[in-house]
Structure formats: structure tokens, C-alpha cells
């Protein structure tokens, strides 16, 4: 039961909370400890917009353990509007619909179900933009 590992990442996973540099305005995701010599308070929590574009994508057909019930599923590198790139699944997206540069938005979904004696792990995925 790796409860602590999932729990401590909840802000980043659930709401795409990264960090912003108070001096330069640079936004980074995932959040990280300050580099050696950097004051801890330089990086403040910052929730990213969740908007971005697909940098690349693939379809997983041979899944790792724990994902056996999911294939085929789309995975992607997404370039977020604020600059950082993230790895995540694409959801609500047909396999033949995914495309490089496709605009996507973040949604919070179930990433994994650790079974009847475990947690449901929730986190960010991306989907084609819903019309506004």
C-alpha cells in the first residue's frame, strides 16, 4: 500500500499545481525542491491553466502491470501553454483523432485502481478541447 507516495503528490496530480519563480516568473511542472544554493521561497505554488498542445502521442497496446484493463490507450507529451511539457494519457479521444499540435485541456480522471484493498489514484489527463 503505497499511500504516502500518492498522497504527497495530490496537488500536482489533481489540479496540475506546479511552481512559479517569484523573481523571473518562470513556471515549472512538476514541482521540485529548490536547487542547491536556491532559496526555498523563490518557488511558489502555481496552478497551471491546463491548456496545451500535443507534442507527440502514441497508443499503448502492451500495457505494464496495473494497466491491463486499459489498452488500447493514448499517451502523449503535452506542451502546456505556460511552457512546461508533461507526460499523460489522452482521454475522451478516439485513437484516430489524436494529432500533433491538437489543442487539449486538462481533466482530472482515474489513473489507476489499486484494487479493493487499495486506493483509486486520481490525476491529470488531457482531452480535446470542449467547445466554448
Amino acid at each position: 500500500m503505497d499511500l504516502a507516495k500518492h498522497w504527497r503528490l495530490r496537488h500536482a496530480r489533481y489540479r496540475l499545481e506546479g511552481q512559479r519563480n517569484r523573481l523571473t516568473g518562470e513556471v515549472r511542472f512538476p514541482p521540485a525542491p529548490p536547487h542547491p544554493g536556491e532559496a526555498e521561497e523563490i518557488w511558489e505554488p502555481y496552478v497551471l491553466s491546463g491548456r496545451g498542445r500535443v507534442y507527440s502521442f502514441s497508443i499503448v497496446r502492451q500495457p505494464p502491470e496495473g494497466f491491463e484493463d486499459q489498452p488500447p490507450y493514448l499517451v502523449a507529451l503535452v506542451r502546456l501553454d505556460e511552457g512546461p511539457m508533461v507526460t499523460a494519457q489522452l482521454t475522451d479521444c478516439d485513437l484516430d483523432q489524436a494529432a500533433i499540435d491538437m489543442p487539449v485541456e486538462m481533466v482530472t480522471r482515474r489513473l489507476r485502481d489499486l484494487g479493493p484493498t487499495g486506493l483509486i489514484v486520481y490525476g491529470y489527463k488531457f482531452r480535446p478541447m470542449v467547445q466554448r
Binding site: Q70, T91, T108, R110, Y122
Partner: peptide, 13 residues
Amino acid sequence: PGPDEDTITMSIE
């Protein structure tokens, strides 16, 4: 609901 959706995920959106 899609396979990654439930009451919690839909409530969030």
C-alpha cells in the same frame, strides 16, 4: 461514463 470517470471526476469538472 468513460472507464476513467466516476462521481468524483465528474464532480470536479
